[in-house]
Each structure stands twice: as C-alpha cells, then as structure tokens.
Amino acid sequence: MRYVDEAVVEKRMKSRVRNNSILKFIFLLSTLFGLIVLAVLLVRVFSQGIAWLDWDFITGRLSTDPARAGIMGAILGTSWLMLVVIPVTLFIGVGTAIYLELYAKPGRFQNFIATNISNLAGVPSIVYGLLGLTIFVRALDFGNVVLAGGLTLSLLVLPIVIVAAQESIRAVPNFLSEASYGMGATKWQTVKKIILPAALPGILTGSILALSRAIGETAPLTVIGIPALLIPFPGGLFDTFTALPMQIYYWTLDASLVAEYAYLAAATIIVLLVLLFLLNSVAIFIRNKFQQRY
C-alpha cells in the first residue's frame, strides 16, 4: 500500500505554491503600507509648511497674525526642557541601573523594582501630566514653569533610560571588571573607571532616544497648563514657557478659525522633526562609532 498518492500531491502542489506567492506579496504590501503612510505624512507636512519656514519664522516672536508669527519662544522653551531632562534622567537613570545591575542582591526586592519600572513604562503620558500638576505645579508650588514641565517629562522617560543603561552595563564583559578587581581596585573604583566608561556609548544612545521622546511629548504639558498666550521668552528654570509640540497643538486647534494656522503648525512640525532627526543621527553615530564589541 502506498501512503502518498503522487497524483494528488502533484495536483495540490500548484495551488499551494501559488498561495505561497500570493500571500508573500500581500505580506510585502502590508509592510510597505506603514512606509507609504509615513511618506504621505512627510510629503504633506513638508509641502504645507516649507513655504512658511524662513529665518523670520524661526527667530520671530509669537503673534496672532500668521504672517508675523515666529517660534523662537517655543524653541527656547523646548531647549530649557532639554536642559532639565538630560541631567535629571542621566543621574537618576544611570544610578538606578548601577544599583540594580551591580549592587542589589538578586531576589525579591530587585524583581519588585524591575516589575515596577516596566509598569511605569506602560503608564499613559497623560497620567504623568496629572502627577506633575499635582506634585510639581500645585504641592511644591512651582507653577507652570520650565522646572515643573522638565521634571514631569523626566519621570515620564526615566524607565527608558534605566532599561537602556541596564542593558549596556550588562553588556560589559566580566573579564574587564575581574581584571580591575585583580589589580586591587575597590568595587566603586571598578564601577567608576571600568564599567561606566565601557557602558557609556550605550547609555548615551538610550538617553538621546529617551530625550527625543520627551521633547515630542504634548499630553503632559497640556495638563500642566502651558498658556496659549503671548508670553516673554523663558530665561530660567522658574519662567513660564511654551514648547514646540504645544505650539503645534494650539495652531492645529485654531486652524478652523484661521486657515493659515495649519501652515504654521506644519512649519513647526518640520522644525520639530528636523530636531528629532538630528538627535537620532547623533545617537546612531555614537552607537556605530564608540560601541565596542567584545
């Protein structure tokens, strides 16, 4: 008795192979679908905004008159936010990662903190906004200033920095620290002079990616209460401010009142996207240039 009837196999083979190629094509199309939407989005934003994007727009002050409006205030506000977010997240993020990877005894407490961090990463950004509103703006009475916004965004992206730092510390090979201990170095000396320098490129890459997440974030800032009014340029941590995404938000909302505001929003988006592109390029550059493989 034959277990396989070759005639039947032959007959079905053709349609099986055909299904395979058809579905392969569909899979390819759906992969391209996302990219096509991305292309449409970029083309749309650039074609609307590029005509409005000139030096006066970048260096100008906010104005209700679309022809005179500029975004210097928003650029400065975003820069001030970055000046808060970078040191705060690096300090807390790297400190937490060193503790979890090198000092904490493996066990319940370490698992608890790790679970906690992954839960924090899943909390919607708007909830962080309410946390910032309640604690920084109201309880500590900062008001809706740069420091309150920056600290809120720092808490938001902290899980990203912690996880990136943990991974790069874990990737430092054991023989480096063992050699250091062998030379009589103490634990902290080893951490400071051997492990951290070796992990630095990875930490920086992760932090820059977290930073670019932070400066694109709008929801927490809307909750903290960034005024839509014309305010003076921020000059310090305790000044009120506006930021690039907030400006995009207000202009998009008001586009139904003044049609030109949509173009201003598009031009601001271009500035924001270029900034994000530069940050990401720096991150990729650092990763390719300084990341050592052992």
């Binding site: 991305l38 749309r44 934003v45 694109g216 974030e217 995009i248 938000y249 998009t252 996207l273």
Partner: peptide, 17 residues
C-alpha cells in the same frame, strides 16, 4: 521611524488630512 514620530504630528495629520 513611524514609532518615533510624535503623536501630536499624527494628530495634525488625522485632523488636516
């Protein structure tokens, strides 16, 4: 790249396009 685009930009895209 799609994942790195700020959500406000998607909002603008949804509303105006």
């Amino acid at each position: 790249i799609l994942a790195g685009i700020p959500t406000i930009v998607y909002g603008f895209f949804a509303f105006t396009f």
